[in-house]
């Protein structure tokens, strides 16, 4: 039985000019179920963000099989959308126009675009900010725009590359709650890359720990905490046991 997103023996080496080659992924395997929220944690530079870019279709792996819904990934497609750590909003576009970017690239007429962007701006809690420019927004609000933009093309898979890393701690907690609400509403498969174990546990159905570079899947932790999840859950013994187990697995990779 083939998984919804399936990676087998994915290898990728960067060859930057004037420098030695860097092996980013080596024999990387992954299985993601449809509708699942899967987080990937790993040491810095282990290739977890690189893997998201491979999945997005921006980087071609050197070898290995990578399929989505049974079909090999051959390039970018509207069945996947990325939420970037540094937001990636076009500064000369308003909130609404940024949210509509993907729809515009698909050639959708302005009227239809507007209907969709209105609904999503409402969903991420930015009503009234449609004609603001990114520089007028706080970090949390920018990432709400990033999320709305990713959801606008109605992708099956949402790729999130440390989306809350640039936010302050309180905004981050808030955004995690919002993301779970939106995920339950929109029913997407989510791949979430983060450095924060707590964030990974709180959000996910499963957490994958990666080895240090060249990145491989080290261990998968199922998170059996009930949903909907609330903030208090973070102080329960179950939560802390998971946190400790994942930290132990990760620690060897960071210190070794």
């Amino acid at each position: 039985m083939q998984a919804y997103i399936q990676g087998r023996n994915v290898n990728l080496t960067f060859r930057p000019p004037n420098r030695g080659p860097v092996r980013a992924l080596q024999g990387f395997d992954i299985d993601v179920r449809e509708g699942e929220f899967l987080s990937i944690v790993g040491p810095s530079g282990c290739g977890k963000s690189t893997f998201l870019n491979v999945l997005l279709g921006l980087i071609k792996p050197d070898s290995g099989d990578l399929t989505l819904g049974g079909k090999p990934i051959a390039g970018p497609g509207t069945d996947r959308a990325m939420v970037f750590q540094e937001f990636g909003l076009l500064p000369w576009r308003t909130v609404q126009s940024n949210v509509e970017l993907g729809l515009e690239l698909k050639g959708m007429p302005a009227g239809d675009r507007r209907t969709i962007s209105q609904r999503l701006i409402e969903m991420v809690g930015l009503r009234g900010f449609e004609s603001h420019y990114p520089h007028e927004l706080s970090g949390g609000m920018k990432q709400r725009v990033g999320l709305a933009r990713a959801l606008a093309t109605d992708p099956d898979v949402l790729l999130m590359d440390e989306p809350f890393a640039a936010l302050d701690a309180q905004t981050r907690d808030l955004m995690q709650v919002e993301l779970l609400r939106i995920w339950q509403e929109a029913k997407k498969t989510v791949l979430f890359v983060t450095h924060q174990i707590e964030e990974a546990i709180y959000l996910s159905d499963r957490v994958m720990v990666m080895t240090k570079r060249p990145g491989q899947a080290k261990k998968l932790f199922p998170i059996d905490l009930p949903r909907p999840r609330d903030y208090e859950m973070r102080v329960t013994p179950e939560f802390n046991e998971l946190k400790f187990a994942i930290w132990q697995s990760l620690k060897d990779e960071i210190t070794a």
């Binding site: 279709g57 970018p76 959308a81 990325m82 970037f84 540094e86 990636g88 076009l90």
Partner: peptide
């Protein structure tokens, strides 16, 4: 470069 990647990732 990020904005280039954003547009490319959306099929631009």
């Amino acid at each position: 470069r990020l904005l280039i990647n954003v547009v490319r990732s959306m099929g631009g």
